Simulated scan of single mutants.
Amino acid sequence: MKKLSFILSICFLLSIILSGCGGNTMTKQASSSGGKNEYEPVTIRLAYNLPQDHHISIGIENFAKKVTEKSGGKVKIQVYPAGQLLSDKEMNQAILTGGVEMGVNSSTLWSSVVPAMGIFDVPYAFSNYEKAGKALSGEMREKLNQAMEEKGAKVLMYADYGYAQFANNVRPLKSPADFKGLKIRSIGEIPSEMIKAYGASPVFLGAGEVYTALQRKTIDGATSGTTAMLQRHYDEVAKYLTINNYAYLEFILAMNKNFWDRLPENTKNLLSETAKETEQWIRAQAKSEDERTAKALKEKGMQIEAISEAELPEWKKAAEPARAAYIKQAGDLGKKLLDSIEHLQ
């Protein structure tokens, strides 16, 4: 009887020990599983130059807020809006060198780093909003992203600004011939080639300098989107607005590639997925914002000259030197990108 009691005691002790070991294993597994869903703490600085009430700015602010919320506050994005941290001329270099982790800048300015990015400035390359969306969902996006990464920038988002137009205070621009002799503020090298082809002289000025230059008549006109024209009060210093949708402007949310490479996989996925959602929201706003702001400028007294489909061939033909300049700068990649856009249905 004593022997049986001894055996039962040993079995009981063994069961306790085994149970304890199993419990520890389960605890470790649960801890490991929970850890996979947690984000490592990180703070990312994000700079942009657009006015805070611009639809791209609103989208970028929401992007930053969502990333922080989805990560439970672990992935913090500190936003520096409206040029508080960097000017648009300083932005690209700061991103490439790690002076700032993330920033938003125009594709026009990025074209000085990756010439193929000038595709968005090629006159009349994107005939409508839908075509631009399709182009940015396929091979063109992949090739541009690869070229950017080779230079040290990871593209997270293409933010649709909308179409570029012309404002001036001299006369209605009903045809390319009407540009002759005018001084027009340009936004980049390719638009400058078009302005010259139309017979005008391009002038490089920062966005914040245009109002005063028009007011003092040191320039006769400027090219920009109607969203910016309204926000910067072009209606007060320019009488005429020509709507010919010559370029579909993009702003790019990019991150320093080295910084990106060091991030945990779940943080990368969080940033990519939230950027994709935000990009779609911004794209949906571009057309309605173009229409709303053009209407507002008309209501404020600007005389609108809308170029019809039947009139566009004349404008396209006169702008061919700008297309040639892009191909010369961007090489084979630029030509392939243009060809791919032309074959989009």
Rank of each mutant, 00 (worst) to 15 (best):
K2T: 04
K3S: 04
I10A: 08
M26I: 13
S32K: 11
G34I: 02
K36L: 15
K36T: 11
E38L: 05
P41D: 08
V42E: 05
L50S: 05
P51L: 11
Q52C: 01
Q52D: 03
H54A: 11
G59C: 10
G59L: 07
I60D: 07
V67H: 08
T68E: 13
T68D: 06
E69K: 14
K70C: 01
G73C: 11
G73R: 06
V75S: 10
V75Q: 12
V79E: 02
L86K: 12
K89R: 12
A94M: 04
A94H: 04
L96M: 10
V100Y: 01
V104Y: 06
G118L: 08
F120K: 03
D121N: 14
K131S: 00
G133T: 07
A135G: 03
S137L: 05
G138I: 02
E139Q: 14
K143L: 15
E150V: 00
K154M: 13
D160G: 04
D160A: 15
G162H: 03
A164L: 13
A164C: 03
R171D: 08
L173C: 09
K174G: 15
K174V: 15
D178L: 03
L182N: 05
S186G: 07
E189P: 05
P191F: 13
E193A: 10
Y198T: 07
A200S: 08
T212D: 10
T212L: 03
I219L: 10
D220K: 03
A228F: 13
E236N: 13
Y240P: 12
T242I: 07
T242K: 04
T242P: 02
Y246L: 06
L249A: 08
M255P: 05
K257W: 03
D261M: 08
E265F: 10
N269T: 15
L271S: 07
S272E: 15
R283C: 00
A284W: 10
Q285V: 02
K287T: 07
E289C: 02
R292W: 06
R292I: 10
K300M: 02
G301I: 02
E314Q: 13
K317M: 10
A322P: 03
D332P: 01
D332H: 09
L333P: 00
L333H: 03
L337Y: 02
